[in-house]
Design a protein around this nucleic acid. Sequence first.
DNA 1: AGCACA
Length: 268
Amino acid sequence: MDSAASPADQSKPAVAKDENGTGSDDGKEEDYKMPDNASETLYLQNLNETVRVDFLKQTLQNLFKSYQVVPPVIAHGNLRMRGQAFVSFPNKEIADKARREVAGFPLYGKPMQLSFAKTKSDVIVRKEEGEEGLESHKKRRLEHKKETRKNNPLRQKMQAKLKAAAAADPTGAAAVAPRRPQIQMPDEYLLPNALLFLQNLPDGTTKEDLHEVFNQYPNLLEVRLIPAKKDIAFVEYADEESATVAKEALHNFKIDGETKMKVSYAKK
DNA sequence: AGCACA
């Protein structure tokens, strides 16, 4: 069992204002044209490889819930496929929206890299062509696999060429500067940290108040208030495990009997 | 880095 909260409990990522283009600060929406390699399925890379795959799948399912993710999320833990996943959506437009809005989202400490999958997912094929269509799709996949075995020299040459071209092309997608993800960071996706971040403290909370509350849990090191912002604070424990115990016990705790204090891991 | 569907 993971010490992290079950992914099913996790709040959905709040999408930044995305109506009428208010969520976009980089150009007019009307001019936007979806890339022609768009797909119903996104290919995710740079995922934290230390997260267990079924937990990761659940998390992704949850993270993309507001985009009507079509299950199943596909991920594998083997050498070739770890750190990657496939997430499908009802159509290309929604997939593209998710791609643009979630790009760079720091899931468990690593900014997600999103692109369109280059082949259709089985779920999508089934939706579009039914069960029979899916069968032939799978058959074709099998055959294609044989033609493109890893050590096919022709294939390797071609790949090297494409890679060089992509690197040389400053307008290529790979050259686009990473930008800030457009969705809010739910703290459930932060990595465990011995340092906790408190929010929504009631007016007049003192260092002593916090010390008393957090000292109920072992290995407390220090409490730091933020003079300029009196509703937030940091609480440091000796190690992540101790911090986790306190965080889970005290998140939403009402110090004054009515104001729910938010406790999350501090960002690293 | 790595494009799957057990």
